[in-house]
Design a binder for these strands. Structure first.
Length: 261
DNA sequence: ATGGTCGACTCTCGA
């Protein structure tokens, strides 16, 4: 049986309802993880997704952040949980874990970092370290586990359009590479890379770069990672550009993967 | 090209 999982930084879920609904109807994913929903919980557009038979888990705030998970199947009762649990800032609008068909799925909106000189950059680096600790405390690399979301880091030179010029910028900084690699080293396989080894495949284009999509000025900062036993069951992974070029485009687009479980 | 453009919301901030 196939499990189709996708992730999308919506940059306002209310502004993207049409393209998200279209994508659900086109692809029928089992799970769609969303970041930057930018909406408080009472205003989350739950009914729109219920119309196309998706349940929603969400935790948001006004203007910033916000995570959600849309699923076809019920979420198992022992989950979900929002936020980290290490005594630091929980960041409930950036971290959501829920179990679908027995597989825990961690959906994160990693702090963007703003600028390497900004205190939020240090916070971002620490966030990766806190994530690794979370995985260490709650899970085993020998068990199926998915980590998806907007991780706000392009891991390798092939993941940005100009690795020479961009090296040292937020999102493509050696300290971020190190921090992300340390979490991956706990036991994750980059599922997109496993299936698509080529350069120039991006999930994000800065609005401010003119004709960024057609000129391929992108970044691969959204990711789907899996522990080894689950990675061995992955069938394919792909970036769907359509939500980015729709009438009301987002700056990110959809990343999806399919597993034979 | 250290700019540019969105989205949320007061107007400027975050990305």
């Amino acid at each position: 049986m196939a499990l189709k999982v996708a992730t999308f930084n919506a940059n306002s879920i209310r502004a993207r309802i049409p393209i998200i609904m279209d994508w659900l109807e086109k692809e029928h994913p089992d799970v769609l993880c969303l970041q930057e929903t930018k909406v408080q919980d009472p205003t989350f557009p739950e009914a729109a997704f219920a119309k196309v038979d998706y349940r929603a888990l969400f935790r948001g705030e006004r203007s910033y952040n916000g995570v959600a998970m849309l699923t076809k199947e019920p979420i198992e009762a022992k989950n979900p949980r929002f936020g980290l649990d290490d005594g630091g800032p929980a960041d409930e609008t950036r971290f959501l874990v829920a179990e679908v068909r027995g597989i825990p799925i961690v959906n994160t909106y990693v702090p963007q970092g703003r600028d390497p000189q900004d205190p939020m950059f240090v916070y971002k680096l620490a966030w990766f370290s806190r994530l690794r600790d979370y995985f260490e405390r709650h899970f085993s690399p020998q068990e199926p586990l998915l980590w998806v979301g907007d991780l706000n880091v392009a891991p390798d030179p092939i993941d940005v359009h100009d690795p020479v010029r961009l090296l040292g910028h937020v999102g493509f900084h050696p300290q971020e590479h190190e921090a992300f690699a340390a979490v991956k080293a706990w036991g994750f396989v980059d599922i997109f890379r496993k299936h698509e080894p080529g350069a120039g495949q991006y999930t994000f284009w800065d609005y401010r770069v003119r004709e960024g999509v057609s000129r391929r000025k992108g970044w691969r900062v959204d990711h789907i990672l899996a522990t080894l036993p689950l990675a061995e069951m992955s069938l394919r992974a792909w970036i769907d550009i359509e939500p980015r070029v729709a009438i009301r485009p987002s700056d990110h687009t959809v990343l999806a993967a399919e597993f034979d479980i």
